[in-house]
């Protein structure tokens, strides 16, 4: 009886491990490329575009930007919704241009992360 329990435990452990690693493989990063540059007001400006490659309209797309200082402290966090009245909802195959500006001084930003929500 005890042996059967141990066997069952090993099988469950094995299957959980395989499922977990498969989950990691099935979650690649998104296909968004954003260009960063310094604008005329000496602020970081981000521009890029997104194409709806799915077969259904998209009702919500947003980007969250997080900037950190030299010590790892968050100095600016900004969420930008990419859809407005003109392009809501984003139809299949439709292309969306976007750009946004960050208020923090470029010299104080050491690490920046961009998260995409769809």
């Amino acid at each position: 009886m005890r042996k059967i329990k141990i066997k069952r435990f090993i099988i469950i452990l094995f299957l959980s491990f395989i499922s977990f690693t498969s989950y990691l493989n099935a979650n690649p990063t998104n296909n968004l490329v954003v260009l960063e540059t310094l604008n005329s007001e000496n602020k970081f400006e981000y521009s890029g575009f997104f194409i709806n490659k799915s077969s259904v309209p998209i009702y919500d797309i947003s980007i969250r930007y997080v900037a950190k200082s030299k010590n790892g402290e968050v100095i600016e966090a900004k969420s930008v919704s990419l859809l407005d009245k003109n392009n809501y909802p984003l139809q299949p195959g439709e292309k969306l241009n976007f750009s946004f500006v960050i208020d923090s001084s470029p010299k104080t930003i050491y690490t920046k992360k961009l998260y995409f929500y769809n």
Partner: peptide
Amino acid sequence: ITKPNIISIFFSDDIVSGKIN
């Protein structure tokens, strides 16, 4: 594997003048 989300383009005059690191 893992790709950059941000491609930065900085011009030499901005770098030399110290506007950007």
